[in-house]
Simulated assay, not measured.
Amino acid sequence: MRLILVGPPGAGKGTQAARLVEKFGIPQLSTGDMLRAAVAAETPVGLQAKAVMDAGGLVSDEIVVGIISDRIAEADAQKGFILDGFPRTLAQADALAQMLADSGIKLDAVIELRVDHSKLVNRIINRAEEAKAAGQPVRKDDDPEVFKQRLEAYNRDTAVVIPYYEKNGLLTVIDGMQAIDEVTADINAVLSKLDEKV
């Protein structure tokens, strides 16, 4: 099962990915985690990434795809994987498609958790207020202004990959505003249909 989860920050991708990891026994591949691991392991691509990051630059698509390519070749990803936070741009989507084709691997599905952005901001504001009321620290990402900036960045950069996957017939849209268990049930229904096709 090779999946991509797409959706804005706060849509619930992390929660759903964790449930899929448990259900299918496949790894969730977060680009941030993979970058840090590659740098720590001092792989050739990791060393390239470290040089760019140490210079204060943004890691190129080529380096990120190289890190993903190395990671999906590892034993635990042979049964499949969940990509979270990648691809973020059309260039990355193209590079990923080429890399998977070169490896003889195909994506099974791209699942978009579609949410109402105005309600999403309210959800984050409520989460921050609940944390404050409980005397807990508010997550940096739950600052409404920071969150709005992340949402704008998502709409500007990442949302463009959705039509790309729709055109390729890989996209399934799920209502991310439902209760968590309902979202999980919808994702499982989509994936069980894929299993039947295999």
Rank of each mutant, 00 (worst) to 15 (best):
residue 4 I to H: 04
residue 5 L to T: 02
residue 6 V to P: 01
residue 7 G to T: 02
residue 8 P to Y: 11
residue 10 G to N: 02
residue 15 T to G: 01
residue 19 R to K: 14
residue 20 L to A: 05
residue 22 E to Y: 07
residue 22 E to L: 08
residue 25 G to H: 08
residue 30 S to P: 04
residue 32 G to S: 08
residue 33 D to Q: 09
residue 34 M to Q: 04
residue 38 A to K: 01
residue 43 T to A: 09
residue 43 T to K: 07
residue 46 G to C: 05
residue 49 A to F: 11
residue 49 A to Q: 05
residue 50 K to C: 04
residue 52 V to L: 10
residue 54 D to P: 08
residue 60 S to Y: 11
residue 60 S to Q: 12
residue 62 E to N: 13
residue 62 E to F: 07
residue 65 V to M: 08
residue 67 I to E: 05
residue 74 E to S: 09
residue 74 E to D: 11
residue 81 F to V: 02
residue 83 L to R: 05
residue 86 F to W: 10
residue 86 F to N: 00
residue 88 R to C: 08
residue 89 T to L: 06
residue 92 Q to F: 10
residue 93 A to V: 13
residue 96 L to G: 00
residue 99 M to Q: 10
residue 99 M to Y: 10
residue 100 L to F: 08
residue 102 D to M: 10
residue 114 R to C: 06
residue 124 I to V: 15
residue 125 I to C: 06
residue 129 E to W: 04
residue 132 K to T: 14
residue 137 P to I: 12
residue 138 V to C: 02
residue 138 V to G: 01
residue 144 P to F: 06
residue 147 F to E: 01
residue 152 E to P: 03
residue 156 R to T: 13
residue 157 D to R: 11
residue 158 T to N: 05
residue 159 A to M: 11
residue 162 I to A: 02
residue 169 G to P: 01
residue 171 L to K: 03
residue 173 V to C: 14
residue 174 I to N: 04
residue 176 G to M: 13
residue 177 M to W: 11
residue 183 V to Q: 00
residue 183 V to P: 00
residue 187 I to V: 15
residue 188 N to E: 14
residue 192 S to I: 05
residue 195 D to F: 12
residue 198 V to D: 14
